[in-house]
Simulated scan of single mutants.
Amino acid sequence: MQAVVFNLQEKSLGVAEKDIPKVENADEVLVKVAYAGVCGTDLHIIQGEFPIKKDGVTLGHEFSGVIVDIGTSVNMFKIGDHVVVDPNSGCQVCDFCHSGEPHFCETALSTVITGLFKDGGWAEYCLVPQHQIMKIPASITLEQAALCEPLSCLAHGWDKISPIPVGKNILITGAGIIGNLWVICLHLQGHRRVTISEPNPHRRNQLTQLDTGYDAITPDELKDRQGKGVLYDLIIDCSGFGPAIENALSLLNYGGKLCIFGVAPPHVKISISPYEIYLKELTIVSVKINPFTFPKALGLLEALGERYLNYDNLGIKTFSLFQYQEALDCLKKGTIAKAMFKI
């Protein structure tokens, strides 16, 4: 089979010919991959900014597919089922895992995440344990289901910043795919007073395709509005850009919340004012992956449907595995919101 493999030691990325994985353990499931997304985390990985298996691994932690083989103890799934794969799993032994917080599991962080430490979905086939897959309802296509993993992270973030009363003034910084997914989820839930700040003109124009009526502005326009006293009750940073995160605090209204959703490089630092946090009773919330939120993400996929999940409207472009470099280049240039391998 064909797979896109990254070797951290050699700092190399390329298509390789690999054997199709075989089901050897009783709880394993072999998935024929249909769609696999390229995440911002993948860009960090390729740039050497994120921990990963050093001697070569097939990337890809956002993917959907069809089961083609199962282990002897697998009884919840059958060959032919359409499924999504949750790449994250705890060790199931440590205090964090037993406390329902597997996303804090330090053992898993360095050993078991699919697409980082185990071969992932940028390939024709992927082998995963049954506890990391979920069956897709008939109303959800494999194409739509490939967005389940990022939506599961969003669902975790939604839980952490709730309640979000309708009528509040909301700002989203960054209109990549995560910003766009927040846009459609907020619109689905009835929010109308939403502004998106994005420096890239192509991405600002892309937002009009979503037909939400939200206001897409440049960071300079945001600064101008700030000078006129415009403040926000909730700011969701999807950029991972240090200066944008730092500035967001000064844009918050009294009692406001800042949700740090975008992943900044590890070396980035910001300066904040404890007095301002005290004075305004601000809340700063961070979001790390998706503990137990895949069912919620499937619910969001069903509710969003074709009205919101059209790839063209979201700025998602599909590529073959052999077009991996073109996909990465388009993402870096910002001419698309997301690259998706159609396999």
Rank of each mutant, 00 (worst) to 15 (best):
L109R: 07
T107L: 08
A138W: 05
P137R: 13
C97M: 14
H98A: 08
H98K: 15
P129N: 01
K135I: 10
E101S: 06
G115F: 05
T111L: 02
I140S: 09
D119S: 01
Q130T: 11
L142C: 11
G120M: 08
C126S: 12
H103A: 07
W122D: 03
S110K: 15
H98E: 13
V112W: 11
W122M: 00
G121T: 08
Q130R: 12
E124V: 07
I113S: 07
A108H: 00
T141V: 01
T107R: 14
A138F: 08
L109C: 04
A138D: 15
G115E: 08
Q130P: 10
S110C: 09
Y125T: 01
I140M: 09
E101P: 00
G120R: 09
S99Q: 14
D119E: 07
S110F: 13
H98G: 00
E143I: 00
M134Y: 14
Q132D: 01
D95E: 12
G115K: 10
E106Y: 11
C94G: 11
G100L: 04
C94K: 03
A123P: 04
C94E: 03
G115S: 08
C105Y: 10
L127F: 00
F96S: 08
E106Q: 13
P129F: 01
L127C: 03
I140T: 09
I113Q: 08
E143G: 01
E101F: 10
L116A: 12
I113C: 02
E143S: 12
Q130E: 15
E106H: 12
I133N: 01
T107F: 12
L142T: 11
E101D: 06
K118R: 13
V128S: 00
H103I: 14
F117R: 07
L127G: 01
Q130S: 13
T111R: 07
L142Y: 12
I113T: 14
A138S: 15
G100A: 05
V128F: 06
I140Y: 01
T107Y: 14
E124L: 12
A138I: 10
E106T: 15
T111P: 07
T114M: 03
E143Y: 03
V128H: 09
C94R: 09
P102V: 11
A138L: 12
E143V: 00
K118T: 07
T114W: 02
P102M: 12
V128W: 03
L127I: 04
S139G: 13
V128K: 08
P102E: 06
T141Q: 04
A138E: 15
V128A: 06
P102N: 09
D95Y: 15
H103R: 12
